[in-house]
Design a protein around this nucleic acid. Structure first.
Lengths: 271, 271
DNA sequence: CTCAGTTTGTTCTCACGTTCACAAACTCCT
DNA sequence: AGGAGTTTGTGAACGTGAGAACAAACTGAG
């Protein structure tokens, strides 16, 4: 039973229809929310495996490492799957999120570039249990063709089109060196693949309608390095921080507010 | 001349000065910008290697895969390093960004968990050329101790504290299975490491002042799957898009996983 | 020197994401 | 049945980010 049909798609805050917003609010779940749904799903699976069958937004939020208000708002985009005064049914919510993401059944995946990283990805057990099935491993090096990795054999890139058609592959993973990435990307797109996960440190250009997500180890480390440097600087000498910064900046002529006119004039005359 | 005013922080409408806001207005570069600086750096290195010594914001932006206005705004947080009417000096800008990120010299890094992924990371040549040096490989499995990977030997976790002190390690990489991640994380923090890159599919809790960045392959794939599913649904019947969206729930649960849908629903209701 | 052309740095506006706070809705106890 | 306690779902305020547009500042030719 439980009618619990929530009229969610009643365009919640669409006040004035047809005025300034030509955008379609059609079931569009915000990107930031989409990126967190898999985290919630994993937390729910963990709870489920521990035999817990009900949880509050507070409990699930802390398991997922987010704020509970954010969690509730995120879930509200999917529908009203909780019960006030009680919480969420773990199995039910788990299924609903899995369905929304689209991992109630497996997606066939191809990995291109079977070097160190490609091997690691091919052997990663986490995929199969999370809605993905690796169906093909490709590499441009003929010396590797035929080599077995797990249950699969490495094949040549020329077999891509056939394999993609046969297995209805929709997701491709690029684990090649950077110089090969764009070429591989175009082959994937040519084979009808419209979602690409790119591990190569290169910027890919793709036609409209193709989604690319990038995972870049060096970039992640560099972001950490920035914050680490910042912590070191601030902690080392908070007093001399200002002078360090002043020295670092040289050609900075910040002009805002009152002093701008004077500064500009001076500089223009001097030049 | 030019008292080298800080270009950032004009504090547009600075409400109450000095009293109510203990927030650090000092040189705070927006996170979104910090995340893009490494991309610009890589693009500049590529230009430099091709012998190009000057570039416009337009050119650099397209090499980095972003909008030129965004690029200029990002760079403006660092200072005024360009020349109007001319563009940017590639080498100069490259150095300024590297300095801002903090990769003008190498950061010592430790990798914990030398399985498939750990091996791949240890062998990844990109680190050394981008401001990082792997100085230690640790694993909890004694059977692996002593094994050589590249130039390093695998060591036990008990050596972490000594190695961290000796090499002044500030960045740790976790490449263990999920269940071990939190424990390893605490050991890293205990050894004085305050920046962590986590590849394990687990939520880490750390004390204040420690930065954690997460790289999760399954999550990236699931985000792609969501969009892929969306494309498939919309493309299937573009004409009846409106109606499809209205009853997306029924349609989706009808199309995929009928059996499991029924099972879950039954269970949820039954419970 | 002046003027036209080019490109940066900055301002303004809008959209998106986060967080607070509270009404609505449920359970449990008396 | 009714009231106290709990928890969801959401409206509203706030902060951050993206992009368009433009003034400032440079180059080079005449």
């Amino acid at each position: 039973m439980t009618p619990s049909r929530n009229p969610r798609n009643g365009t919640p805050h669409d006040d004035v229809p047809g005025t300034s917003t030509p955008k379609t609010p059609d079931r569009g779940i915000p990107e930031a929310t989409v990126a967190r749904l898999p985290v919630y799903l994993r937390a729910l699976i963990a709870l489920s495996e521990r035999g817990i069958d009900t949880c509050s937004s507070e409990g699930l939020a802390s398991a997922a490492g987010v704020n509970s208000a954010k969690l509730r708002k995120d879930l509200s985009y999917l529908g009203s799957y909780g019960t006030r005064g009680v919480g969420y049914d773990v199995e039910y919510l788990r299924y609903q999120i899995a369905r929304e993401i689209g991992v109630t059944q497996d997606w066939p995946v191809v990995i291109v570039g079977i070097g160190n990283l490609g091997h690691a990805l091919a052997n990663y057990a986490g995929f199969s249990s999370r809605g993905f099935r690796i169906v093909a491993l490709l590499d441009s090096d003929p010396a590797r063709h035929g080599e077995r990795v797990g249950e699969l054999r490495i094949r040549g890139l020329d077999e891509l089109a056939d394999l993609a058609r046969e297995h209805e592959i929709a997701i491709g993973v690029i684990a090649t060196p950077a110089p090969a990435a764009q070429d591989v990307c175009e082959r994937l797109v040519g084979a009808g693949i419209t979602s690409i996960l790119n591990f190569a440190p290169a910027v890919l250009t793709v036609p409209e309608g193709v989604d690319v997500r990038k995972v870049d180890l060096s970039i992640e480390l560099q972001i950490l390095a920035y914050h680490e440097q910042r912590k070191a600087l601030l902690g080392a000498s908070a007093a001399s921080a200002a002078s360090v910064l002043e020295e670092a900046e040289e050609l900075a002529s910040g002009l805002d507010g009152v002093a701008s006119d004077a500064a500009v004039r001076t500089k223009a005359v001097g030049a």
